[in-house]
């Protein structure tokens, strides 16, 4: 069963459209195939969408196939922000720095 509100782009990419959640400035893209999609946690999808609401985000809010729920941002998450009007967030790096 496909997850409601998400759109499969191709065999390895799943999109969280910008209208998935109020306040999203961009879409989310999760790199998963149909097998790994079955194990996706709802909490992790919400987190990828939440990151897309942050000021100054550039491109999509991204997640790799080893995605799972983390502190604020998913583990497996990639997000880029403009250095002029974007933010930096410790949750985007996590506790286990480097």
């Amino acid at each position: 069963m496909p997850i409601e509100g998400l759109r499969r782009i191709d065999a390895n990419r799943l999109e969280i459209p910008k209208n998935y959640k109020a306040g999203m400035r961009t879409n989310g893209i999760i790199f998963v195939d149909e097998v790994l999609e079955k194990g996706l946690e709802t909490g992790a999808i919400e987190q990828v969408a939440n990151v897309a609401t942050l000021p100054g985000i550039v491109g999509s809010s991204l997640a790799m196939p080893d995605i799972h729920t983390g502190y604020g941002f998913t583990i497996g998450g990639v997000a880029a922000f403009d250095i002029h009007d974007g933010v930096i967030s410790p949750g985007g790096v996590g506790y286990d720095i480097n």
Binding site: P55, G56, G72, H84, V87, I88, S89, G91
Partner: peptide, 22 residues
């Protein structure tokens, strides 16, 4: 900064708080 989840706590990149964290 309006956040959907307080765990996303952040600061504008050019603020002293952000630069100190970096």
């Amino acid at each position: 900064i309006d956040l959907p989840d307080k765990e996303l706590a952040c600061a504008p990149f050019n603020s002293p708080e952000a630069q100190d964290y970096l």
